[in-house]
Amino acid sequence: MRFSPDEMIFWQEGFFKLNATIMFTWGVMLVLVVGSRLITRKLSTDLKRSRWQNLLEIIITTIEKQIEEIGLRHPKKYLSFLGTLFLFVATANLFTVIPGYEAPTGSLSTTAALALCVFIAVPYFGIEEQGVRGYLKSYVIPTVIMLPFNIISEFSRTLALAVRLFGNMMSGAMIVAILLIITPFIFPIIMTALGLLIGMVQAYIFTILAAVYIAAATHVRKLKPDLDARH
């Protein structure tokens, strides 16, 4: 039994290989980029616009609003990263309705890669917003005792991000596969539908958590004067 699409290898040359995860990821990327290009090719700045443009505008403005609600002051700056994170995970999970397709998010390699991206993005945005010293200071707040815990937290939450998404998606695929063996007719469909819902929820959770981590990294300096004032 296959736990991950990584195990389905199409081509291998030493360290390099082309497995199902990478192939399906390229497929999802292609759909996303070509779809975006097709829709945004004839954008209308008028009051009248196409349904697809309307859909994209709704998705993007909703993501922007969510980012803003979390507490990031300039949502447009984080939109590319967080928005792509959500759209990629959501699309990858949505395509599970296609027979023969295996979600790249069902691979721990993919989720780990995404979690590593978040792991890198948090200090990147944090340093960009408040400088190296300011960002590093956030690890010793409120006291130096918190430094190891903060460092552990950085790694553990990255791991949690990767494992949470992988676990949910892999389990969904597993359940459908097992149910296909036991009750081949109705239940797999219901579980697939449920899997779609779980996939959407996971995409949302993954993006929101990433946004929260970035927000936490960029907001430390703002909190510090408040803490000083209390003393």
Binding site: F3, L108, S109, T110, A112, A113, C117
Partner: peptide, 21 residues
């Protein structure tokens, strides 16, 4: 469960996707 080549490839894929999007 983790294939590090795939992880690297996926990180690259994701960054390319971010840029394209």
């Amino acid at each position: 469960l983790i294939d590090w080549f795939t992880v690297g490839a996926q990180i690259l894929n994701f960054l390319i996707l971010v840029w394209l999007m």
